[in-house]
Design a protein around this nucleic acid. Sequence first.
DNA 1: CCCTATATATAGTGACCCTATATAGTGGTG
DNA 2: CACCACTATATAGGGTCACTATATATAGGG
Lengths: 110, 110
Amino acid sequence: MIGANIKRGSAELAVLSVLEAGPLHGYEIARRIERNTRGALRFTLASLYPLLYRMEARGWLKAAWSETGDARARRCYRLTAAGRKKLAPLRKEWNELFRALGRLAEAHHA
Amino acid sequence: MIGANIKRGSAELAVLSVLEAGPLHGYEIARRIERNTRGALRFTLASLYPLLYRMEARGWLKAAWSETGDARARRCYRLTAAGRKKLAPLRKEWNELFRALGRLAEAHHA
DNA sequence: CCCTATATATAGTGACCCTATATAGTGGTG
DNA sequence: CACCACTATATAGGGTCACTATATATAGGG
């Protein structure tokens, strides 16, 4: 598993990414992230829920208690237009970081 | 410039990377990181110095006040064997994070 | 002589992911 | 039917780390 201090800040992008495919509730978001990354990226629910509230407060997500007669109380999160618009720039920023670290690695071989 | 919450944790790898080419003092470490990444990655001195102390305490770096009659007081940092050994695993971990984020991005297109 | 660049250092703040804990419904097993 | 594992949400408290702001001091140019 990737260390906490390295993956720091990636939770936001991870949540937006899994919600891109469709609305999910918190517990399922955590499972999808873990499954889709083959266990490499994993967030505890205790860090995910506050993150979801923050993202909702920023207007990137919209939460709704499921009213479809579910047996279990579930809060379903879906991307807002603003949240969807955040995806591309966020990915670009992460790619820039990746390239930057790559350049630092190659610099002394040049 | 890459946001603080995204690059979090990358400073460690950045410092190890620029020191791989040879010993440098703190101020120059900051300049190398910025220059080698074309300005994409930039750390303030105020966050770099505490990081250097932490890394030295962990035994990854060894500091020495320059005694070569420099006009200016400079603390020169060089990689220890332990620090050099940290580079490969750290890079691997970062690469895993990027692969994981990539898989999350592609998942909903599958 | 001032201003900028060089060079190191600390205090205080904020963001965020963690462990630990609480609560509660669901379904299977002995 | 008692117990346990899984599902599901929630909060408290702690630790790490990069930030802004500030302090100190020397070197060199205009």
